[in-house]
Simulated assay, not measured.
Amino acid sequence: MTAVGGRTSRAVPWAAVIVFVVVACGLAWLVALPLWLGDGLAEPVAGLLLPVMMLTPAAATLVVALVMRVPSRGERARFLGLWPLRPARRVVWLMVAAWLVPPALIALGILVSAALGFVRLDLTFGAFATELRDALPPGTPLPPVEVVVVAQVAMIPIAALVNAVPAFGEELGWRGWLLPALRPCGTWPALILSGAIWGVWHSPVILLGYNFGRTDVSGVLLMTGGCVVWGILLGWLRLRSASVWPAVIAHGSLNAAGGLIVLFAAAKPDLALAGPLGIAGWIVVVAVIAVLVVTGQFRRQPELAPPRAAHPATPSP
């Protein structure tokens, strides 16, 4: 449905939204429970549980779609942005941008971090070489660190596509279901609220020190801020294309390039300041959002399926 004055004519299905959030967040805590009962992120199963946690928004989507029937059966593929891919040219170009632009923004964020003094760069990659050696058994032969760095950077486009597979589990929920469901309250409220929920959903692992190394509410606040600004950008891809696939690819690309700063930092960086979800990342992404706003890109939105619930058929008299 096309937004008129930032709003649509239908109401937000708040009951379904509440159920979605409770299920997504509740399942996330359930999946992370073994980490809380064990050694946190040092648990051997952490590498398995984190991708499983990414599936919980998709599970919440299935609950509201199949049990609460929001949206109704005939509208699901279109409402979730799975199909059709129209206009095809726009969707394809936005998918390409979603694939290539996030790593460029993260690289720009590294330069902003250096300019603001958040991190000192080392183009000899000495700190990364030391970290690499410490992570491997003593005596393990290593190629020159420059070769490793070039290989890591060159693999980002491929890793973005690989990471898009688990990212689909999140995006089907956040930008596939939640953003269109909230859109009747206005484009910007929907973007900000869906991004904030996305950030809070990360709490089970953020409070264990994931991403920022902070195990208190400050880590959750930082993650929420990062998810709001990146969520606006991913949400714009979703609304501008009427498809969830550009957001899926962008999410995978963001995850693939998120560790770039570790390669170039002269010492272990404070990701709250220098990381893609930290202050430097916010500055870069907000600048991009401002350009999109000034050029009217948020006003150009194709029609989306309305969040109607299915109603039982009325028997004929």
Rank of each mutant, 00 (worst) to 15 (best):
M1G: 05
A3Q: 10
V4R: 11
V4L: 08
R7S: 05
V19Q: 08
V22I: 15
V23Q: 12
C25R: 07
C25Y: 10
V31S: 12
L33Y: 12
E43K: 11
L48G: 04
A65S: 13
A65Y: 06
V67T: 11
R69N: 11
R78I: 00
L80W: 13
A88K: 10
V91A: 12
L94C: 08
L94A: 12
M95R: 04
A97M: 15
W99T: 02
L105D: 11
L111T: 12
S113M: 02
F118I: 08
L121D: 15
D122S: 14
F125Q: 04
G126H: 14
F128H: 12
R133C: 06
D134I: 01
A135W: 05
P137G: 02
P138Q: 11
P143A: 08
V147T: 09
V148S: 05
V148T: 13
N163C: 10
A164L: 03
F168N: 07
E170W: 00
G173V: 03
W174C: 08
W174R: 03
G176C: 04
L178G: 04
L179G: 04
C185V: 09
A190I: 01
W198I: 01
V200L: 08
W201G: 07
S203Y: 00
L207R: 08
N211Q: 15
G213H: 02
R214V: 15
G225E: 00
V228N: 05
W230V: 00
G231K: 01
L239I: 05
A242V: 06
S243P: 07
W245K: 07
V248A: 10
I249C: 10
V262Q: 10
K268N: 14
A274Y: 01
G281Q: 01
V285I: 14
V285K: 09
A287P: 02
V291P: 01
G296M: 02
R300D: 14
R300I: 01
P302R: 00
P307M: 11
R308H: 12
A309I: 03
